[in-house]
Simulated scan of single mutants.
Amino acid sequence: MVPLPFLLGYFLRLLQLLSTCLAFSFVVSVGTWMGAVSNWSVFVWCFCFLVTLIILIIEFCGLQSRFPFSWYNFLITYACYAALLCISASIVYPITYIWFFPHGRSQDHAIAATAFSCIASVAYASEVAWARTWLWLGVITGYMVTVPGLLKGLETFVACVIFAFISSPHLYVHQPALLWCVAVYSVCFLLAAAALLLNWCDCDNRLPIAFPTFLLGLTLLSVLLYTSALVLWPLYQFDEQFGGQPERSSCNDGLIYSVCTWDQQLAVAILTGLPVPSSLQVMMSSSWILI
């Protein structure tokens, strides 16, 4: 008899598989797959579908023990990132596309794809919540199931989204301060990814210092770096005295299915503020562990 925790996990993964498959199928079937945002959304749904399918096959074949890392840490890490990816696709895709389609089959399919993307987001988020519940009951363990682990995952995801928005060098190459901000995003991403990889590969006990102390030092550095970017990026992008543009003008980027330059700058400014409170929460959690 399959234990209830694992049976629920199978059900959630089947729901994830079905919803992501339908999401990208609706987009591709009517030719609404155009532009960078649509390409990225379809990639998100296809990637989540493929990885979820591989996970199901591995679990049905009982091959989890063949992998040289914590399988449960991998599942929770993947569910966390998949939930964030699907949520972002559920927001960005309809904002960029649905309102531009005329009423008809294309718009209906875009709405259906968004709906199934939202279902996939709920399914992945439910898996994370399910793992949190069984952590409290002592059934499973793992760093990624804890609040500091989830916040570290959120920090790396936010950094990846920022990289997508600053993929055009013209947003920052004209100012050294903005180049500093890009360096901050890169360094903080690498630090957070290093912390997750060390724990995921069960190498955290090989450090010369305790892992909570190591994590506390990395997080403190990330807070300081992100705080500097939180000040410099809006200052040099939106203050006229520093060559910025305080108000949004009409989008003249020449592409219908794209995000305007000013909107990209604003999105990066907002996203820069997200890792600071999460990092502070990680610091508080790590401090309590040390005590």
Rank of each mutant, 00 (worst) to 15 (best):
L190Q: 06
V182R: 12
I166D: 03
E127K: 03
V173F: 12
A192F: 05
V187D: 01
S117F: 00
G153T: 06
V182K: 10
F116H: 08
L171A: 04
S121G: 06
L178F: 08
C181P: 13
R105D: 01
F163A: 15
S106T: 06
Y143F: 14
P169Y: 10
F189A: 14
F189I: 06
H174C: 08
I111Y: 00
V145N: 07
A110I: 00
V161M: 12
C203G: 09
P208W: 03
G149S: 02
N205C: 13
V182Y: 04
Y185S: 04
W200F: 15
M144T: 08
W136L: 14
D202V: 07
I166H: 03
T114Y: 02
Q107M: 13
G149D: 02
L178Q: 09
R105H: 07
M144Q: 10
G138N: 09
C201N: 07
D202R: 12
S121Q: 04
A195G: 05
R132I: 08
F157S: 02
L151R: 03
S117Q: 03
L137W: 10
L151Q: 05
V182C: 11
V139P: 04
E127Q: 14
H109Q: 05
A123H: 08
V147N: 14
V128W: 06
P148D: 01
I111K: 01
W130L: 15
P208E: 03
A195L: 09
W130I: 04
R206V: 11
E127H: 13
L178T: 03
A115D: 04
C188Y: 05
L196C: 11
F165V: 02
P169K: 14
A115E: 04
I209E: 06
H174T: 04
I119R: 05
L198C: 08
I209R: 14
N205M: 14
G138S: 10
P169W: 11
I119V: 15
I111V: 12
L196S: 10
R132V: 10
L137E: 15
L178Y: 13
A177I: 03
L207T: 08
T146V: 02
C201E: 01
V173I: 15
L190I: 08
A194I: 09
K152R: 11
L150P: 01
V184P: 07
H174R: 14
I140A: 12
R206L: 15
C201P: 00
L151F: 13
P148Y: 03
C160R: 08
D108G: 00
D204N: 14
H170E: 14
G142Y: 04
P208C: 07
C118P: 00
H170Y: 12
E155N: 14
S186V: 10
R132Q: 12
L196K: 06
D202P: 03
A177R: 13
A194H: 08
I209M: 15
V122Y: 13
F189K: 08
V161P: 02
A164L: 15
I209S: 07
H174Y: 10
I140V: 12
Y124I: 09
S126D: 09
L154I: 11
C201L: 15
D202C: 11
D108N: 09
